[in-house]
Write a protein that binds this DNA or RNA. Structure first.
Lengths: 224, 224
DNA sequence: ACCTGAACACCGTTCAAGT
DNA sequence: ACCTGAACACCGTTCAAGT
């Protein structure tokens, strides 16, 4: 009996913090963060919800761990390349990671304690800039602008009422539906923008990202 | 008896959607969004939680309304001024509003249906740019960069493990505590940044905001 | 038309009990 | 050392019943 139970436990992989966090990320990616509960997560791992508390202090601690894993997925700046290329690639990687885990960006605001992958990432970016000759002040300026832009752009992108990966017809339809509800001329400039851009065959808001990124990189270059 | 009940109901202001939303914002500002429940909100308004459902379809609808009110607090661009001044003032106002309602920014990502104040705000910003001679494409670029930066910077600012409004000693202490836990040299560039800036007497991360804002405004000017 | 009380199907977390 | 079951104090929301 005892032996049988032990074997059943063996059959599934041992519960670890890492396995819990990865399962939680998968669930959050699929169903959204507001639907992620300790009970559902336990079920998914073949375990009672209460077992999770042997590996995570509480749910907040678990969310901290999830955010740190997401951070770890962002490419570190390549340290051979010039700083513009390195920062450009890192920014593009960061946006892709955040789009893959849409729940992560909204969680940032309330995470008090940064994890090791987060700290490593920050250290690496600062190192890349300092090595390229940035002063401490200028590295702080550059990092603040770039990260602000990356997070904010992606947040806005995620907030758009249509999926960025979907085809243009969905976008056009959506924009049309939204505008229909208003008196003509109530939001003339929004309407103009919708007709001119959002309703065009191959419009993707995400295409704006690199325009802004390059404008910022140029601005930093000039400020050096 | 019926009369008495009616009088008691009269004594408190009638329950309206607006009154509910304002009370909810006050509670979220004070205790955080995760602590805002329909039951607590009802108690605060002197009413059963279930009464709220006569004025809000559900909690998501209520959160939509709250976000729209926050949007309405952001100054619209003054339409006499040149576009740089108008955009600068609007950006500064937006950051102040978001710092006042720290829960709002994390909610944006999941709000599917923008409210009237939100639409009005967007329309007004686009109008200000178009009037200043921006092409539709250039207005879209400018708006995307500016809003991305504003949201992202403020999100980062809110995520910092110390309050921006607090005095510098708290920041210095915090930075010290964070760095203490590591092997010396584990995060050399973070350590350098902490010693050089975060631990300085009157360091405030918020001061970075206008540096980046002006860099972006200059970049847009040059792209025109 | 608006408010209420009870009920339902959930939550996160503690704790004593098991192995 | 790790897992469990029951329990506690909460949630959002529905619905029939009141006024």
């Amino acid at each position: 009996m005892a032996l049988r139970a032990k074997r059943a436990a063996k059959r599934r992989a041992a519960l670890t913090r890492g396995r819990i966090l990865r399962a939680a990320i998968t669930l959050a990616d699929r169903d959204g963060i507001e639907s992620l509960s300790m009970r559902k997560l336990g079920t998914k791992l073949g375990v009672e919800a209460m077992s999770l508390y042997n590996h995570c202090r509480n749910k907040v601690d678990m969310l901290d761990g999830m955010v740190d894993i997401v951070f770890g997925e962002i490419d570190l700046p390549a340290n051979g390349a010039d700083w513009q290329t390195a920062m450009r690639k890192r920014a593009i990687s960061a946006r892709q990671v955040l789009l893959r885990h849409p729940w992560a960006i909204g969680l940032m605001e309330s995470r008090a304690t940064p994890g090791p992958a987060t700290l490593r990432h920050h250290d690496s970016v600062l190192g890349s800039l300092r090595t390229a000759g940035f002063s401490v002040d200028m590295a702080a300026h550059a990092y603040s602008i770039l990260d602000g832009y990356i997070y904010g752009f992606t947040l806005t992108e995620l907030a758009l009422p249509f999926s960025t990966s979907e085809g243009a017809p969905a976008v056009a339809e959506m924009a049309g539906t939204i505008m229909e509800g208003f008196r003509p001329g109530q939001y003339p400039h929004l309407a103009e923008m919708a007709v001119d851009r959002a309703m065009k065959p191959d419009y993707k808001y995400g295409d704006e990202f690199e325009y802004g990124l390059d404008l910022i990189l140029d601005g930093i270059e000039r400020a050096l």
